Amino acid sequence: MAFDIWKQIKAGSFSPLYLLFGTEPYLINETKQLLISHALSPEEVDFNLSSYDLEETPIQTALEDAETFPFMGERRLIFLHNPYFLTAEKSKSKTEHNLAMLEAYLKDPSPYSIVVFSGAYEKLDERKKLTKQIKKSASVLEAKKLTEPELKVWIRDRAASNGVQIDEEAVELMLRLSGTNLFMLTSEMDKLALYAEEDKRIDVNMVEKLVSRSLEQNIFTLVDKIVHRNIEDALRIFYDLLKQNEEPIKILAVITNQFRLIYQVKELARRGYGQNQIAGYIKAHPFRVKLAAGQGKQFSDEELAQIMNLLAEADYQMKTGGMNKALLIELFLFKLNRHSVET
């Protein structure tokens, strides 16, 4: 798990080999930055930090570097990007790798080098002997999307690393407003920590006041107002989006995507799927599925079907008709301001 590896790195405990792979780029990038800042002093970076793209450079060149004594420091840090030979993916690379040399190195890595294999691969080819060997020899970080509990732990840890505490209600609101993108959450948490520097505490009011909303989050809030038939607040959010120069056709597309998600979650839940199964099936984060499930309870199946029809009609009119695009969304919202949706 990323948090365990990070703690070891921060404590100055390093593995001679790391394997970082997965589809959550923040976790991989953060691990790299921690290694650079903790394994090397600023003066050593220019001399003892190397980076190779294995789609362009043969592994033997990188390993020769790893076996070279560090210059003016204790260790070398070497990043090996795109180790495609650990996957089942076909590469266009014509680079010839001496994998026997790599196998030998994995059995006896250099004591004065840290070698980091890094690739944005969803999975590795576990059938390959080399993959098995490197996973056995290295500290492995599989960078998956964090679950809701892991995201909450991450938010608290980020607050603590900035010397502040965050209330539980504020953690919940952070996830609702910023979503699950760790790069965005990092930016917002660091901003909040700076604002809370005097009191050393982030509360829900501070989050509500300071956290930026993405278009997707504004649309989620708009849909939430629709769910509760609060047309006045829904229109206010819509007009705010127009003031921010968001295009009506883009707004409609995101509204449609959110209702499609609600429809899919509701249908799959009726078939007996759990939230994590649904998330995997439709390739959405479990936290988004959880929120959509809650919204879906406010609509009957007939209402959701009618809403999807209304959205399809609005999309058609927006792309082919001469009616004002913003007015089409207003009409859609007014039609939903009834206890039940009418065709």
Score class of each variant (00 low, 15 high):
K243G: 06
K243S: 12
Q244I: 01
E246I: 00
E247F: 11
E247L: 12
E247K: 14
E247N: 07
E247Y: 11
E247I: 09
P248E: 01
P248N: 03
P248T: 04
I249Y: 06
K250S: 13
I251E: 11
I251W: 08
L252A: 05
L252G: 05
L252T: 04
L252P: 05
A253N: 05
V254C: 06
V254Q: 12
T256R: 06
T256L: 09
T256G: 10
T256M: 10
T256K: 01
Q258E: 13
Q258F: 13
Q258A: 13
R260E: 04
R260K: 15
R260V: 11
L261S: 03
L261D: 02
I262Y: 09
Y263S: 08
Q264W: 04
Q264L: 09
Q264M: 09
Q264Y: 07
V265E: 00
V265T: 11
V265L: 00
K266H: 10
K266S: 15
K266T: 15
K266W: 05
E267V: 06
E267M: 11
E267P: 00
L268Q: 00
G272Q: 04
G272F: 01
Y273D: 05
Y273W: 10
Q275F: 12
Q275W: 11
Q275M: 11
N276Q: 14
N276G: 01
Q277N: 10
Q277P: 06
Q277S: 13
Q277M: 09
I278L: 02
A279S: 11
Y281M: 11
I282S: 01
K283G: 04
K283F: 02
K283Y: 02
A284M: 08
H285C: 04
H285N: 08
P286H: 02
P286M: 03
P286S: 08
F287A: 02
F287P: 02
F287I: 01
R288A: 14
R288L: 08
V289C: 03
V289M: 02
V289F: 03
K290T: 06
K290L: 03
K290C: 02
K290W: 01
L291M: 10
A293R: 00
A293C: 00
G294S: 03
Q295I: 05
Q295A: 11
G296M: 00
G296I: 00
K297R: 15
K297S: 11
Q298E: 15
Q298A: 15
Q298L: 07
Q298N: 14
F299R: 02
S300T: 13
D301E: 13
D301K: 13
D301C: 00
E302Q: 11
E302F: 07
E302S: 12
E303L: 00
L304M: 05
L304T: 01
L304Y: 05
A305H: 13
Q306S: 12
Q306W: 04
Q306I: 09
Q306R: 15
I307Q: 10
I307S: 10
M308S: 12
M308N: 14
M308F: 11
N309R: 14
N309W: 07
L310Q: 14
L310N: 10
L310G: 07
A312W: 09
A312C: 08
E313G: 01
E313T: 10
E313M: 07
A314Q: 10
A314E: 08
D315P: 08
Y316H: 12
Y316T: 14
Y316F: 14
Y316I: 14
M318Q: 06
K319M: 02
T320S: 15
G321K: 03
G322H: 13
G322V: 14
M323Q: 13
M323K: 14
M323W: 07
M323A: 15
N324Y: 04
